[in-house]
């Protein structure tokens, strides 16, 4: 059941079973690949880790509507416009699935939205980069959604049931996002010299931020070990990043475009690609709020929330009026 309105607070059993044995049983269930459901006992640290991760993920989907939404009115054809609208609508839907999953852990939607709008909650740093050209829409679909899929597929097997189920739904839809992006890049890469230059320029700007999406290197990742123990996370940041590079290099080659990394090379011995150092200083700056579009993105979300307030209130007032009218007819 997807609701915290049901009694999730009934966590403390009447008979004082000690916390250690509850935790032991919880870990055994996780080890046995059983899913943990909202009303099951879980350690507070597990609950808080999930709330943080799922809500950050939800915020990322919602903020992620903005960079591409920027191009809806200027898409070059009606078909591309329809595709882009469908994709942006999907991102909104993904945000909705994920907020619902987070709410099963006992946090309200209002709290989550408030955390985003006041700047306390984080969202994926990638969405703080601008989309100055149409090719950015292609590069985002291909690289950003590609990296997201790489991160998200293992989450379909995450130990927390509602999150895993939301991710199954999301992954099913995400593949369309990546393919429409690659298709757009392919069309530009096969177009005029100017179009190809535009595609290359977008690739140059999105490549490194896409690699940063996998998070800090394993050695510096603060949340990883608990998450792996609890089977929330199945692969390390560096493993997934490497896999993404290995998948993407041949795709770029097929486009006839060059990845902006002079150190990128195939290693015969390891059968993997080696790539240059990532500028973690840039990543940290963007995360701290100093990226090119942080201020703009949050301002857009706040405006949408504030300007929509009267609609939400009016809908509630209308629903209440209908309910009363029905009640008085019945009386």
């Amino acid at each position: 059941m997807y609701t915290q309105a049901l009694d999730v607070q009934g966590l403390e059993p009447a008979a004082p079973i000690d916390a250690a044995s509850l935790e032991q049983r919880f870990l055994e269930r996780v080890d046995a690949e059983e899913k943990i459901e909202p009303k099951d006992w879980m350690p507070n640290r597990y609950r808080n880790t999930l709330i943080r991760q799922i809500s950050q993920h939800a915020h990322s989907e919602i903020v992620g509507m903005l960079p591409e939404g920027n191009w809806i009115t200027r898409a070059p054809t009606l078909l591309r416009k329809s595709i882009l609208i469908a994709k942006v609508q999907d991102e909104g839907g993904h945000g909705a699935y994920l907020y619902s999953a987070a709410e099963t852990l006992g946090v309200s939607r209002d709290q989550l939205v408030e955390q985003l709008l006041c700047g306390k909650a984080k969202y994926s740093s990638i969405f703080n980069y601008p989309t100055p050209t149409w090719a950015d829409v292609g590069a985002i679909g291909w690289l950003v959604d590609g990296a997201a899929i790489m991160n998200q597929i293992p989450l379909c097997r995450c130990s927390y049931g509602p999150y895993a189920r939301a991710m199954v739904r999301i992954c099913r839809e995400e593949s369309f996002h990546q393919r429409q992006g690659y298709d757009l890049m392919l069309q530009l890469a096969r177009g005029t010299a100017e179009q190809k230059r535009m595609a290359q320029d977008a690739l140059n700007r999105w490549w490194w931020p896409a690699l940063m999406m996998f998070g800090p290197p394993d050695a510096e990742s603060t949340h990883s070990s608990d998450s792996q123990r609890w089977k929330i996370k199945r692969f390390s940041n560096d493993e997934l990043r490497q896999k993404f590079v290995d998948f993407t290099v041949p795709q770029a080659r097929f486009l006839g475009l060059t990845l902006p990394d002079p150190l990128l090379r195939w290693n015969e011995a390891t059968e993997r690609h080696e790539f240059g150092p990532i500028d973690w200083n840039e990543f940290n700056q963007v995360l701290k709020g100093n990226g090119p579009c942080n201020v703009e993105r949050l301002a857009a979300r706040r405006a949408a929330h504030e300007e929509g307030a009267w609609v939400r209130e009016a809908a509630m007032a209308h629903a209440e009026k209908q309910r009363r009218r029905k009640a008085s007819i019945a009386a």
Binding site: Y97, S100, R169, A315, H318, A319, Q322
Partner: peptide, 8 residues
């Protein structure tokens, strides 16, 4: 299928 918020 899941859950959502709505006025009615």
């Amino acid at each position: 299928a899941g859950s959502l918020h709505a006025a009615d």
